[in-house]
Simulated assay, not measured.
Amino acid sequence: MRLTDFRALTFDCYGTLIDWERGITTSLTPLIKRLEKPLTRDDVLEAHARHEAGQQRYTPEMPYRELLAVVFKRLAEEWGVPYTRDEAEAYGRSVGQWPAFPDSASTLQYLKKYFKLIILSNVDNESFASSRSMLQVDFDAVITAEDVGSYKPSHRNFDYMLDILPSLGVRKEETLHIADSIFHDHEPAAELGIKSCWIYRRFEQRGFGATMRTVNEPSVEFKFTSMAQLVKAHHEELSRG
C-alpha cells in the first residue's frame, strides 16, 4: 500500500496538527502553581485525559470550549485548589490559542496539492476558527464534535465523515485517516474499516499524555513520528513513480 493510492486525507487536529499537550499545560499553569505538592507534566496530562473523556461521554452535545471549563473545575476539585468560574471559562476559550506543531502548516500546504483535506476533530466550531488560521490551508471540509453532537471515539463522528465523502467526490477506500491518538482515532477507525496513519508525536516520551490509555498498538497502514516524515515518504513515492 502506498500513500499515493489515496485521494483524501482526514485529520485529527488537536494532538496531530495542533500541539494540544503544550496548549493544555501552558493554559493550566495558573492552576498548577497553586498546588502544594508539585505534579509532573504527565500527571497533569493524564488527569486531564481522564476528566475530559468522562465529560465527553456524559455530555456529548456540550461544545468543547464549555466542556473544557468543566474539566478545569474537576481538576481544581481533585487537586484541592481554589478557582473561579472566570478562570474555568478562560481555560475553555484558550483552545484557539494553542500552538500548531512547527511542521503542520508547511506539510498541509504540500499535501493540499495532491489530496482533498478534511478535518475530523473533537472541537467546537468557534475554537477551530482560531486554530485554522495557524494551519494556513483551505480544508475541503471541517467536521467538528459540535456538528455531530458527539465526541470521538464514538463511531457517530466517523459515520458522519463517511456520509459526506461522496459529496466531495471521494470513496471510503480512497481515504486515509491521519491522527496521533490511538484511543480517539485509530481504534474506532480500525473497527469501521477505515485505513489510518499514525503520527506518533510522543515517540520520545513515556505514557499516553493527554489521551486515555489503551492496551494494544493501533492497527494502522502507516506510522510516522511527524507530519514532515509523512510528506517525505509521499515525495519519495512520487520520485519512484
Rank of each mutant, 00 (worst) to 15 (best):
L31W: 04
T26R: 12
E21S: 07
R34P: 02
Y64V: 04
V44N: 01
T25Y: 02
E61D: 08
R34I: 10
G54F: 09
T25W: 01
E61G: 02
R65G: 00
C13H: 08
M62Q: 13
L28A: 15
E78S: 03
E77G: 05
A49P: 02
E52G: 03
D43M: 13
C13M: 15
V81M: 12
T40R: 15
L31R: 11
D12K: 14
Q56G: 11
P60Q: 06
E89G: 01
G80K: 08
H51M: 12
E66I: 04
E66M: 13
R93F: 07
A49S: 11
Y64N: 04
A47Y: 10
Q55E: 09
Q55V: 03
M62D: 02
H51W: 15
R34G: 05
Y14P: 04
D12T: 09
I24R: 10
G15Q: 07
A53C: 11
A49H: 05
K33G: 01
I32K: 10
L17Y: 07
Q97N: 09
T16I: 06
E46A: 09
T16E: 06
P38T: 04
D43C: 07
V44L: 07
L39K: 08
L67Q: 04
G15W: 05
A53R: 14
D86Y: 10
E61T: 08
R85H: 09
R85S: 10
T29C: 11
V44P: 01
P38Y: 02
K37G: 00
Y91T: 03
F11V: 01
F72C: 03
Y64T: 03
G15S: 05
P60D: 01
A49L: 10
D86T: 15
I32N: 06
L45K: 01
I32E: 05
A49E: 04
T84V: 07
G80D: 01
G92T: 03
Y64S: 02
W20P: 01
E21D: 14
A90K: 13
D12H: 14
R41K: 15
F11G: 00
R85F: 12
A69F: 13
R74A: 11
R50D: 05
G96L: 06
L35S: 02
Y58H: 14
R74Q: 14
L31C: 10
I32Q: 08
M62L: 15
L67A: 04
E87I: 05
T10K: 08
L68T: 00
V44R: 03
G92C: 08
C13T: 13
R65E: 05
I18K: 05
Q55C: 04
D19N: 15
G92N: 05
R85K: 13
S94C: 11
T26S: 11
Q97L: 12
W79H: 05
A49T: 05
P63H: 13
R41N: 06
A76E: 00
Y14S: 12
W20M: 07
L31Y: 06
